[in-house]
Amino acid sequence: MKGDSGMNGGRDGALAVEAEGLVYRFGDNVAVDGVDLEISRGEIFGFLGPNGAGKTTTIRMLATLLRPDSGAARVFGHDVVREADTVRGLVSLTGQFASVDEDLTGKENLILIARLLGYSRKEAKVRADELLEAFGLSDAAGRQAKTYSGGMRRRLDIAASIVITPELLFLDEPTTGLDPRNRNQVWDIVRSMASGGTTVLLTTQYLDEADQLADRIAVIDNGKVIAEGTPGELKGSVGSGVLHVRLRDPGSRPEAVRVLSRAIGVAVETPSDPVALLARVSEPERVPEALAGLPHAGIAVSDFSLGQPSLDEVFLALTGHPTEEKADKKEEEAV
C-alpha cells in the first residue's frame, strides 16, 4: 500500500533509511561521528540518547536540512543531498520545539501547509478541519497557536506534519515536556501512523518511551551509535531489570550480598548508601525466591523494588559513564 501507492518515488525494495558513516561538525565539535543506520519500511525506529548526543543533528541531515560533512544517506533509495527535493516529498519533520506559527490560528497553520503542498483553497480548508477534528483541536481552531497549551501545540505540530501522510515521519522528542495524558495521546498518534504504513523515526531521552513505541532502538552517545536492537535485546544486554533492596541494618549488608548473589546468579553491587543493594537481573522470575531468602538468613529488609533499567542504567552499562548533558554540545539543540 505505502510507497507504491503511485504518487511518489519510493524506490522498490529500498530501505526507508539507509545511512553510512554520517558525520556532522559544528566548528571543532563533532556532533555526529560516523552514524550508520538501516531502517525498514513501516518500522517505528527509536533514537535514544541524552541531550547533545547527536540525535537532532542526525535527523536534520536525514530531513535534508543539514548537509553531512561526510558519509551518505538515502531515504527510500533517494540520496538526501543529490535528490533532496524528492526526499522532501517523502518525509515530514516535527521539530523539537513545536514548529508552528504562533501568531496564526491553528486552522490557519494547517491551511498554510496544505496550500504549500498544492491544495486548492477549498481543499485546504476541508483538510484542515478534518485534522483539527482528528486531533481534538476543533474548539481551538480559531485561536492563535500562542494561546495553546504544550500538548495542544504539539498535536497541531504533528497534524501539520501529516497534512499529506508522509512515507517517513521524523519526530524529534515528541513528548518532552508533556504531561502523561498528552504523552499517551502522542503515542497513540504515532502508533496509528505506523499501523497506516508510515515509517516513524523518533528521538527520545526516555527508555520507557522507546520501549513502548519502537520496534528497534539505536542508542546514541557522543555522536556515535553505541548499541542497536529491539527494546528487549537492549534491556537484556543490561539485565532485564534492576533490583533495588534497602536493608534495616547496614551491618547485615555483606551477608545480604552473599545471599542475594547466590540466589539470583548475578553480581550484587553496593551503592554509596550503606543500606542499599543493587543488582542487574537477567532472570526476574528468580527474584521473589531470592528476596525470601533474606529473612531466612536473619536479614531485615525495609523495602525493595524491581524495575526496568533506567536510561541512566542502560547508559552506564553500555558506555561505562553516566548520561550527562554536554554543555559544549548545547549548540546542537539551539539551532
Binding site: K2, S5, M7, N8, G89, L117, G118, Y119, S120, E123, R127, E130, L131, E133, A134, F135, G136, L137, S138, D139, A140, Y148, S149, G151, M152, R155, I162, V163, I164, T165, R181, N182, Q185, D188, I189, S192, M193, G196, G197
Partner: peptide, 25 residues
C-alpha cells in the same frame, strides 16, 4: 484545554491519517 484532550477521537484520527493523494506541487 482539558476538554480538547478528551475529544481526541480515535475514529476521526484513524480516518484522517491515511491521506496520501498528493496534489500537484
Amino acid at each position: 484545554a482539558g476538554k480538547a484532550h478528551a475529544t481526541i477521537a480515535e475514529g476521526a484520527l484513524r480516518s484522517a491519517l491515511p491521506y496520501r493523494a498528493r496534489p500537484k506541487r
